[in-house]
């Protein structure tokens, strides 16, 4: 029996996917946890960021800084388009519109007519050159055992975690500032904040933009070592993010980060155990049937978390506004 999956599962700690999801989940925490915006389209922000970055780098040949700027501008525009019609309405309207908008992005980029630009269903490869050109690490193999990284692989992992830490510090400071108190006030009682003369819709918009930018940059971290695939930004991505923030605690800064680590390590472990059981014929299922199991587990975990521990691991039950 091959038990390599155990170190590989813990290697998820350093995978760009984990780092990216941590950052995107942090953005979603700003929306959902701190401001109370029911954004079901974080995958849309991720896709917009990814496509703005990949198209400007690969198709237009822009330098790294310009592509990153484009990625941020894309997220801001997307937030404005989503926010203007919905932020003055009740929470469920935002949820429907954001989930629809995320799907619009996914369908649109897959359209054959614009595939010279977006790569259609195949996505876009090779947006990494500008980033790897900055790599100062010597070109040797790093790591130990089954966890080995090239210098470029280690470089993206280091930068990725640095970005997440910076973003977490930023969110932490923001939430302790007057701005943070206002958005948390909006979460608790919108009318009370409005009665103090604050422009609630504008504060919600700022929150939507901030979290959206984090989602957009998250994709950049994910796609640099891999590639941009439109179907990775379907609705299930948003649902994964919700599971992550509810796991860690939706109203904390550390929650989404630890949540992402736990989420991917556990998912990888279960996948490994299932593969082991299936290949050794210890489970009466086929390897095709193995694929959906992780999604079933995530779905059930999401339900159980919301019902029994809405504040997550780190959360404060009093602050978990949605625990009723």
């Amino acid at each position: 029996m091959d038990f390599n999956f155990i170190p590989l599962a813990f290697g998820q700690l350093l995978e760009p996917q984990t780092i990216g999801y941590a950052l995107a989940a942090l953005g979603l925490t700003v929306h959902f946890g701190f401001t109370g915006l029911l954004n079901f389209g974080q995958a849309g922000f991720m896709a917009v960021g990814g496509y703005f970055f990949a198209i400007t780098t690969v198709k237009f040949g822009w330098p790294l800084w310009a592509a990153l700027l484009a990625c941020i501008v894309g997220a801001v525009i997307f937030a404005l388009i989503l926010g203007i019609p919905t932020l003055r309405l009740r929470a469920d309207y935002l949820s429907i519109v954001t989930i629809a908008a995320a799907e619009i992005i996914r369908y649109t980029v897959k359209t054959p007519d614009i595939s010279p630009l977006t790569g259609g269903s195949d996505g876009i490869n090779g947006s990494s050159d500008g980033f790897y050109a900055l790599d100062p690490l010597p070109d040797i193999s790093y790591g130990f055992g089954v966890l080995r990284y090239t210098n470029d692989g280690l470089w993206i992992r280091i930068v990725g975690w640095l970005v997440v830490i910076l973003a977490a510090l930023l969110v932490r400071q923001l939430m302790r500032s007057p701005w943070g108190r206002i958005v948390k006030g909006i979460r608790e009682d919108e009318d009370a904040v409005r009665s103090l003369g604050k422009n609630v819709t504008w504060y919600k918009m700022q929150s939507l933009i901030l979290g959206g930018i984090m989602g957009a940059i998250a994709t950049v971290i994910v796609i640099i070592p891999t590639s941009l695939q439109p179907d990775n930004y379907g609705t299930q991505t948003t649902f994964f993010l919700y599971t992550i923030i509810l796991l860690g605690g939706a109203t904390t800064v550390l929650g989404p980060i630890v949540g992402s680590i736990i989420f991917w390590v556990v998912l990888q472990l279960t996948d490994g155990i299932l593969t082991l059981l299936v290949t050794n014929h210890l489970l009466p299922i086929t390897s095709i049937q193995q694929g959906p199991i992780r999604f079933i587990l995530v779905g059930i975990a999401l339900m159980l978390l919301v019902i029994f521990r809405p504040q997550g691991i780190f959360g404060n039950k009093r602050e978990a506004h949605f625990s009723a």
């Binding site: 029911l38 625990s323 009723a324």
Partner: peptide
């Protein structure tokens, strides 16, 4: 209601 909506999402996925 908001947690209920998230429960429905989990149910949908499962």
């Amino acid at each position: 209601l908001i947690p209920l909506m998230i429960v429905s999402i989990g149910l949908s996925l499962a």
